[in-house]
Amino acid sequence: MTTLVIASGNAGKVREFGQLLEGLGLNTQPQPEGIEVEETGATFAANARLKAEAVAKATGQWALADDSGLSVDALGGAPGVHSARYAATDAARIERLLQELNAAGADAPSSRSACFTAALALADPSGRVVLEVEGHCPGEILRERRGDGGFGYDPVFYVAEAGLCFAEMSKELKAELGHRGKAVQRLKAGIRKLL
């Protein structure tokens, strides 16, 4: 395994994986344009599996897929597996999330508790998934955006342990505390065994 295709069209996610996987000697590449995988799974893990299998088969390379999202307790776990499809843009997704929390009467910080989950699946060039891991990061949803880093829901996802939202964190701190960073640490251990 020298080339690893990141099964995503999200430039922010591809860049973050490239940074998180540094030191393994892998050439990470974004998936080729034109590959569309319908995310029909009921869980983050199922969607990661679908994407890894499809991209590995389409490229004939090792493929790493991530399905991640935000689950908010007061919204019954929404947006969950629909996090990326909750609205058309990051700004619209955040706006919808905040409106729905307000409509649910989630005023106290304890009622705004949430968790980010990242499920990763690694498929070999034949499309067989050989490694699956998950990482979680508990937090709460802020009432308004803060910070100017990150992407997605990062400006409203507050991590008490750091006293910062994801969009205010350095890349290093987000990698340490964040759901994707935790999942990648588990993934790296598994990849080292495969190498």
Score class of each variant (00 low, 15 high):
residue 3 T to W: 00
residue 6 I to K: 05
residue 6 I to H: 04
residue 7 A to D: 06
residue 7 A to S: 11
residue 7 A to T: 06
residue 8 S to G: 05
residue 9 G to N: 15
residue 9 G to W: 03
residue 10 N to Q: 14
residue 14 V to I: 15
residue 16 E to K: 03
residue 18 G to H: 10
residue 18 G to S: 13
residue 20 L to P: 04
residue 22 E to Y: 07
residue 24 L to E: 09
residue 26 L to F: 12
residue 27 N to H: 14
residue 28 T to D: 09
residue 29 Q to Y: 04
residue 31 Q to G: 01
residue 33 E to Q: 15
residue 33 E to V: 12
residue 35 I to E: 12
residue 35 I to D: 11
residue 37 V to H: 09
residue 37 V to C: 11
residue 37 V to A: 08
residue 37 V to L: 12
residue 38 E to M: 09
residue 38 E to Y: 07
residue 39 E to F: 07
residue 40 T to L: 12
residue 41 G to D: 07
residue 43 T to K: 07
residue 45 A to G: 08
residue 46 A to W: 01
residue 46 A to Y: 01
residue 46 A to E: 15
residue 48 A to W: 01
residue 48 A to C: 06
residue 51 K to Y: 10
residue 51 K to D: 05
residue 52 A to R: 10
residue 55 V to D: 01
residue 56 A to M: 02
residue 59 T to I: 04
residue 60 G to N: 10
residue 60 G to R: 03
residue 64 L to A: 07
residue 64 L to T: 08
residue 66 D to L: 11
residue 66 D to C: 13
residue 66 D to I: 03
residue 67 D to A: 06
residue 68 S to G: 14
residue 68 S to M: 09
residue 71 S to V: 08
residue 74 A to D: 05
residue 74 A to L: 15
residue 76 G to K: 06
residue 78 A to L: 15
residue 80 G to R: 06
residue 83 S to F: 05
residue 83 S to K: 09
residue 84 A to N: 02
residue 85 R to E: 01
residue 86 Y to P: 00
residue 86 Y to R: 12
residue 89 T to K: 09
residue 90 D to F: 10
residue 92 A to N: 01
residue 92 A to R: 00
residue 94 I to L: 12
residue 95 E to C: 02
residue 96 R to G: 04
residue 101 L to V: 10
residue 102 N to Q: 13
residue 103 A to I: 04
residue 103 A to R: 08
residue 104 A to P: 01
residue 106 A to I: 01
residue 107 D to K: 13
residue 107 D to G: 12
residue 109 P to Q: 00
residue 111 S to Q: 15
residue 113 S to L: 13
residue 113 S to A: 10
residue 113 S to V: 11
residue 117 T to G: 00
residue 117 T to S: 06
residue 118 A to I: 03
residue 121 A to Q: 02
residue 123 A to T: 04
residue 124 D to M: 01
residue 125 P to S: 09
residue 126 S to Q: 09
residue 126 S to F: 02
residue 128 R to L: 07
residue 130 V to I: 14
residue 132 E to A: 04
residue 133 V to P: 09
residue 135 G to L: 08
residue 140 E to I: 08
residue 141 I to Q: 01
residue 141 I to A: 02
residue 143 R to Q: 07
residue 144 E to M: 04
residue 145 R to H: 05
residue 145 R to I: 11
residue 146 R to F: 05
residue 146 R to Y: 04
residue 147 G to Q: 09
residue 147 G to E: 11
residue 147 G to H: 14
residue 147 G to R: 13
residue 148 D to H: 05
residue 148 D to W: 01
residue 149 G to Y: 02
residue 150 G to S: 09
residue 151 F to D: 03
residue 152 G to S: 14
residue 152 G to D: 03
residue 153 Y to C: 05
residue 153 Y to I: 05
residue 153 Y to D: 03
residue 155 P to Q: 11
residue 156 V to D: 00
residue 157 F to W: 10
residue 157 F to M: 14
residue 158 Y to C: 03
residue 159 V to N: 00
residue 163 G to A: 08
residue 165 C to D: 05
residue 167 A to E: 00
residue 168 E to C: 07
residue 170 S to Q: 05
residue 172 E to A: 15
residue 173 L to H: 03
residue 177 L to N: 02
residue 178 G to W: 00
residue 178 G to A: 10
residue 178 G to M: 02
residue 180 R to I: 13
residue 182 K to W: 06
residue 184 V to R: 10
residue 185 Q to H: 02
residue 186 R to Y: 02
residue 186 R to C: 02
residue 189 A to P: 00
residue 190 G to Y: 10
residue 192 R to A: 07
residue 194 L to I: 11
residue 194 L to M: 14
residue 195 L to Q: 14
residue 195 L to W: 14
